[in-house]
């Protein structure tokens, strides 16, 4: 059924998209499906990808709402089921909630700026910008509270932020291109 083509954005649409993408972010965190083991015991996360997808599909308000759910969940998780010293820092809402509110807005701005030029490219940019917003703002907040020296932050931003941005861009493109049936020009299976 091609009901997804009803483009009109109603209050119900905004609420449901925000709700399901929020649920997805929570689910990815809860089951640890959204974490990919990375070097030296660190993990890359894609929990913020639902925020980016929601923002691209339904705009900045929906993106912010999903970001809020994501942030509240990471706050709750840090409080109720901490798994390491870093979680202690995330018990502070300024670190766990506040930065997440901006992921959607920035991703949407990037998407909107380029959408009419090249939509797949706009999606890549949204994925990257959304991720970097998350990385930079969270790390800044951590620096602000003095949990880590400022000098330690840029290496972390590069080591985690960049690969996460790539993963987020890949996922955002894969999902939104399929969902909105965007033509990408190849039209060939590898078979």
């Amino acid at each position: 059924m091609s009901t997804e083509t009803v483009v009109q954005s109603t209050p119900a649409r905004k609420i449901v998209i925000a709700g399901v993408m929020g649920a997805l972010a929570v689910f990815l965190g809860w089951t640890h499906l959204g974490f990919i083991p990375w070097v030296a015991g660190a993990a890359l996360t894609i929990m913020h990808v639902p925020v980016i997808i929601g923002a691209v599909l339904e705009g900045p308000v929906v993106g912010t709402a999903i970001g809020l759910i994501f942030g509240l969940f990471s706050l709750l998780q840090a409080v109720l089921a901490p798994t390491g010293p870093v979680d202690v820092w995330f018990q502070n809402p300024v670190i766990s909630v506040l930065p997440r509110l901006f992921i959607g807005v920035v991703a949407w701005l990037g998407y909107k700026a380029l959408k009419n030029v090249n939509e797949p490219l706009a999606l890549v940019v949204a994925g990257i910008l959304g991720t970097l917003t998350n990385t930079v703002l969270v790390l800044s907040a951590i620096g602000l509270f003095g949990h880590l020296p400022w000098g330690a932050l840029p290496p972390i931003a590069i080591a985690n932020g960049l690969p996460e941005a790539v993963l987020a861009a890949i996922l955002t493109v894969a999902v939104v291109v399929a969902w909105k049936r965007i033509e990408t020009g190849t039209r060939k299976s590898k078979m």
Partner: peptide
């Protein structure tokens, strides 16, 4: 993860479309 997450998200969006209609 890709073959898992992409259909998961697409199926979820499809469910979302149904729920939107039901709410409206």
């Amino acid at each position: 993860l890709i073959p898992l997450l992409v259909p998961l998200i697409l199926a979820t969006l499809q469910r979302a479309e149904d729920l939107i209609l039901a709410m409206e």
